[in-house]
Design a protein around this nucleic acid. Structure first.
Length: 824
RNA sequence: GCCCGGGUGGUGAAAUUGGUAGACACGCAAGACUUAAAAUCUUGUUUUCGUAAGGAAGUGCCGGUUCGACCCCGGCCCCGGGCACCA
């Protein structure tokens, strides 16, 4: 075995260099730097117990970006922490009889070691974990601020109730409508819960998306659709029975109002409830409607069912009496819990009407000159490009004309008003769980809910609990929940619900800046570091987490705690790492454990293999094969070449005027590589092509003949460039080899400047097409004229064959690229 | 069901602004070194016809726009993400 290759021992080198970084606090970030700040953040992990390949991908991508920006002369902060509250800890507690806090903390300890072994450039002095009272006290404090601002309210909302385990279940704990442990039929149950008024910020959350240039269009589109702004009319159908004063419905299609043939209400609507009192079938139907899981996907997939209440409502314009139906697909939480149904012009209403034999009345028809198909007996006509028919005084109006005329008429009748609606609903933050941040509210019989005063924060979650999985332990701890009302001093009870864990992840990015601040949620440092310059994380967070964090940031801004509008300037949304076609996550467990690969081939090889496998946004099936070949490349190519080069003398300075063609050619490839790597790292975020370009250059370097010191100098420049360009991806071997080549620490190095002169080409290849098909190619000077190129192309043997005897109708010359002869 | 993506060799992928499809790797095959193996190196590798030069086909399927389409447009199929209590 060759000595120079045998001496690459990744584990030894990585251990040594990681110790160096730790001892020198190489990655601790400070605020007093003359360099521009760069806050690089990857979504913090849930401490499930072990790192999986999804983590390796996310954190390597984040680290590559952070380390590249450091080379670009930025003052980089890369913190790390733990999203430590959540359901899996409760499951583990039941399964292994270990308290959630203990389980969580030992997982953190283990996973931190794993992260360290991958060599990430984290500022560990800022580490935080969300189940720490020193963290969540500020979340409680902020909640009480929002409460005082009127951004918090309580209302009834549905949960999945397991009647056997007497427990609220998460959607993922309901399998085919049954509780995952009890296997009992799950019921919807209404509970009083806390909500945050995210809808107060709906318009800003929508508008500010336009300014987020650094976000993928895909994610912005998803958020826009989720917020779902619509302009419509809220109108009233006349109905004065069972204590109701009309039925309010919202529609975006007032132009179809004259085609409404029935009203559909949710099963829990007061009219449905009143009807069910005297109708056995309806009350059975009502119960059936409560057997669907509280998830939109399940609601959408179930069979659309309905039942006549027997009540009639009066149409606001025609005065006609329309039947009121209960329908299982109308949501009580959404809008007013009632909709007007226009079967002729809405798919779902059409199907419902067909199923139950309800009237279908066409009020829109295609324009005379339109080629649209419209057969109401076959399906609904939902186009907005038709004109009104069968609508009396409104006949002949187009969509906008009818929208305005009918809205105005309703307004004049005092039976409607124009309204902007959002699909976005307020954020329910109550969880009937133990392992979460206690909601800082005290319920007093006299005063109602009272926010816990600042001086009494944090409300600490007791960690010494026995946990059986039936109900929350907090509800069985009177010693914890019994307290005095802060306002009147009477006996009162603490809220025993805890927060949705999205609460902790909605502001952690800001807390990293001020993680050791004991006297406030955030301080001036948060203003220095936020917004996050580059945020990296899985595409599964495209909507909820990112929307909630954007909302929090705006409230933080309004409280004067940060001074920017958006939390994350640039976003890299990562595809999944799959194993056997399944997303890797805590539920998959040990599948794809990176540790044995790190122990065998080293962190650099694992990082490089992961970056080489696919571009960041793409999901891919993880395969271990790449790790071995990455290690092989680092050893037999990079390490061996540098070691060999160091054995040869070469001049320190290159006189570029004295280079021969071959030397010039290799040097051009080196500087092309530098330019491409800088673009791929900084703009394109495509790290797989950084690696392939470096590999490609290495192949050329290996072929390059070295006869003298100048040859070796060219090779040395190439190797230095490759070591530096690889540094963000393989920081350990780059640190070691850079020190040998240059004698300085690569953490203090700057990106190598591209020599524009070196990029100049003396000739280039143009291709020749005949009718768009490739027929030949030729070398030409970059300064040659179009006419020259066309002449050379025409004279190529293989081209002549295809032109001969035909008429050249057109010649397309794209300078420096191609000549295309169009012949017939 | 609704919203958003994706589909390219045996495999992971590349092709950045509509201009040489398959770079760079993995795998495989042949060869060199070796008593042998491992390691390493060299060559070949989309399919197909051809000794070759070269030809034909080819980026999920069908159609369109264009001198030219993996890329743009229309329709379809399949896969993935999200759907508000997994995080």
């Amino acid at each position: 075995m060759n000595d120079s290759t045998s001496s690459y021992n990744p584990l030894e080198i990585e251990g040594k260099i990681q110790s160096y970084w730790r001892e020198n606090q190489s990655f601790e970030a400070t605020e007093n730097s003359s360099k521009p700040k760069f806050y690089c953040l990857a979504m913090f992990p849930y401490p499930s117990g072990q790192l999986h390949m999804g983590h390796v991908r996310t954190y390597t991508l984040g680290d590559v970006i952070g380390r590249f920006q450091r080379l670009q002369g930025k003052n980089v902060m890369q913190p790390m922490g733990w999203d430590a509250f959540g359901l899996p800890a409760e499951n583990a507690a039941i399964k292994h009889k270990v308290p959630p806090a203990k389980w969580t903390m030992s997982n953190i300890e283990h996973m931190k070691k794993q992260l360290c072994s991958l060599g990430f450039a984290y500022d560990w002095s800022r580490e935080l974990y969300t189940c720490n009272p020193e963290y969540y006290r500020w979340e409680q404090w902020f909640f009480t601020r929002m409460y005082k601002k009127g951004l918090v309210y309580k209302k009834a909302a549905f949960v999945n109730w397991d009647p056997v385990d007497q427990t609220v279940l998460a959607n993922e704990q309901v399998i085919d409508g049954k509780g995952w442990r009890s296997n009992a039929q799950v019921e919807r149950r209404e509970l009083s819960q806390w909500f945050l008024k995210i809808t107060d910020y709906a318009q800003e959350l929508l508008d500010k998306l336009d300014d987020l240039d650094g976000w993928p269009e895909k994610i912005k589109t998803m958020q826009r659709n989720w917020i779902g702004r619509s302009e419509g009319v809220e109108l009233t159908f006349l109905f004065d029975e069972v204590g109701q004063n009309g039925i309010k419905v919202y529609t975006t299609r007032p132009d179809t109002l004259l085609g409404a043939t029935y009203i559909a209400v949710a099963a829990q609507h007061p009219i449905a409830k009143a009807a069910a009192k005297h109708n056995k079938d309806l009350s059975v139907f009502h119960e059936e409607c409560n057997k669907v899981k509280v998830a939109e996907a399940d609601m959408a997939k179930m069979e659309k069912l309905g039942m006549d209440t027997g009540f009639k409502a009066k149409h606001p314009i025609t005065g006609e009496e329309l039947p009121i139906w209960v329908a299982n697909f109308v949501l009580k939480e959404y809008g007013s819990g009632a909709v007007m149904s226009v079967p002729a012009h809405d798919h779902r209403d059409w199907e419902f009407a067909k199923k139950y034999g309800l009237d279908i009345r066409q009020v829109i028809a295609p324009k005379a000159d339109s080629d649209e198909n419209c057969d109401i007996s076959e399906g609904a006509y939902i186009s907005k490009s038709g004109v009104l028919v069968n609508s009396g005084e409104f006949d002949g109006l187009d969509f906008q004309g009818a929208f305005d005329a009918i809205s105005n008429k309703l307004i004049a009748l005092n039976l409607g008003e124009k309204q902007i609606n959002y699909r976005l609903r307020d954020w329910g933050v109550s969880r009937q769980r133990y392992w979460g941040c206690p909601i800082p509210i005290i319920n007093c019989d006299k005063c109602g809910p009272v926010a816990v005063p600042d001086a009494d924060l944090p409300v600490v979650l007791p960690t010494d609990v026995s946990f059986e999985g039936v109900g929350s332990p907090l509800k069985k701890m009177p010693g914890w929940y019994k307290t005095k009302c802060p306002d009147c001093g009477a006996d009162a009870n603490r809220e025993t619900d805890t927060f949705d864990t999205f609460m902790e992840s909605s502001w952690y990015y800001a807390r990293f800046a001020s993680s050791n601040q004991d006297n406030a949620m955030l301080d001036e440092r948060a203003k220095y570091w936020t917004s996050v310059d580059h945020y990296v994380g899985g595409e599964e967070h495209a909507i909820l987490h990112l929307l909630y964090a954007r909302f929090f940031h705006k409230v933080l801004r309004d409280e004067g705690l940060v001074d920017s509008d958006e939390p994350f300037k640039k976003l890299l949304s990562l595809g999944m790492v799959l194993k056997d076609g399944v997303k890797m996550s805590k539920s998959v467990g040990a599948a794809g454990d990176p540790q044995q690969l790190i122990d065998l081939y080293g962190a650099d090889a694992v990082r490089m293999a992961m970056m080489f496998a696919a571009p960041p946004e793409q999901s891919f099936e993880w395969s271990e094969n790449g790790v071995e070949s990455a290690e092989k490349w680092l050893r037999t190519r990079l390490w061996a070449s540098v070691t060999q080069c160091l054995e040869h003398d070469s001049p320190d300075k290159l006189d570029t005027n004295k280079l021969d063609n071959k030397q010039r050619e290799l040097r051009r490839l080196v500087h092309e590589m530098l330019a491409k790597a800088e673009d791929d790292y900084g703009r394109r975020l495509r790290f797989n092509t950084v690696i392939s370009t470096v590999m490609s250059l290495m192949n050329q370097v290996d072929k390059f003949e070295r006869k003298n010191a100048l040859d070796w100098a060219i090779v040395k420049e190439a190797l230095k460039s490759m070591v530096l360009v690889m540094a963000p991806i393989t920081p350990h071997i780059s640190h070691e080899l850079w020190f040998q080549l240059v004698g300085e620490n690569i953490e203090e190095a700057s990106w190598l400047e591209v020599d524009q002169d070196a990029l100049k080409k003396t000739s280039l290849t143009m291709i020749v097409q005949v009718n768009g098909k490739l027929r030949g190619q030729f070398e030409i000077s970059p300064d040659a004229s179009k006419e020259d190129a066309e002449q050379i192309a025409k004279n190529l043997d293989n081209v002549g064959k295809f032109i001969e005897g035909k008429t050249i109708r057109k010649v397309i010359v794209v300078p420096n690229k191609l000549v295309n002869f169009v012949v017939s």
